[in-house]
Design a protein around this nucleic acid. Structure first.
Lengths: 157, 157
DNA sequence: TCCATTTAGTTTCATATGAAACTATATCGC
DNA sequence: GCGATATAGTTTCATATGAAACTAAATGGA
């Protein structure tokens, strides 16, 4: 790929990524939000608590790449809808453990197969080798971004 | 890749795409927004008008995958900052042609190399073959999403 | 022990966003 | 030509979002 000197949005990778991602996320979100009245942050909280019950809000934030404000709000609305339970930490009064309630678990059990099926549909245009290769590329690029932002942060301090 | 029955966010492709994209877009946006007080929609409008002056708002929307409300607002603030010019369409009174003003062009000329350099930095972790392969995969997946949403739309009507 | 600092989580406020209604112009069918 | 419909673009309104301030609990040092 030659060094470009002109910007063509259609071949600008960050832009292409952004358009693709928004369409995919949008398509998935449409499915579960219609059926369960669930926002994206709420769904992420449910997804991570389904896998790892008893996490604190901070831990949920870390695993979902959301910030603590987003998590706090999602947790509040999920609690209001009785989709989560919250129990105080025994030693640390600031911390609360979060888990899915029966209602939350029911949603989890129904949305997971839906999400996986949409993912399969999305990936079905790629052959197995291509899927592996996508996986590798995403891993490399994500790690690279980790390092890049770590470097930037260090530069600031 | 075996059919998964359990959802692991870290290996769920739509989620990985979303996290990666947000970090990349965020990193780029941070650069130009700080320097030029430019929002993402504004920058997109400038990017597309730099390439194709004289487009209408509707055409800008189409090329940037933004909706017309977003474009309308971005155009308004760019006009207010005298970064665009607007001239009425000769035949059609509803339509206006948009172009970069000298001020807008100056921003374009400065941001384009910055954006391209950040893209190169982002992609630098991949070898040339991998970059080509990323390009191919993005193209296939985007086309696939086009077809999928077209099918859904058709199903609705 | 007590003050300063850190951390978990919430609230506030200002701004961004999207859907739907609206305005103005253009086009189509008759 | 003229009413019905479609299209370009804007406005309104309700909600989502993020940054920063805030509260409460924990920790660390003198």
């Amino acid at each position: 790929m030659p060094n470009k000197t002109r910007l063509d949005l259609d071949s600008f990778v960050p832009y292409r990524l952004s358009v693709l991602t928004n369409r995919v996320s949008g398509a998935i979100a449409r499915h579960y939000s219609e059926r369960f009245d669930l926002s994206v942050p709420e769904w992420r909280v449910i997804a991570v608590l389904g896998q790892a019950p008893g996490l604190s809000a901070r831990e949920v934030a870390k695993r979902t790449a959301m910030d603590k404000v987003q998590v706090s709000r999602a947790v509040q609305s999920l609690l209001a809808a009785k989709r989560l339970t919250r129990t105080a930490h025994l030693q640390d009064g600031r911390v609360a453990h979060l888990s899915l309630s029966a209602r939350g678990q029911a949603i989890y059990d129904e949305v997971v197969p839906l999400a996986l099926s949409l993912e399969r549909q999305f990936l079905s245009v790629l052959g197995p080798g291509e899927q592996k290769s996508l996986d590798t590329l995403l891993t490399k690029l994500s790690r690279h971004m980790d390092r890049m932002s770590a470097t930037e942060d260090a530069a600031l301090s």
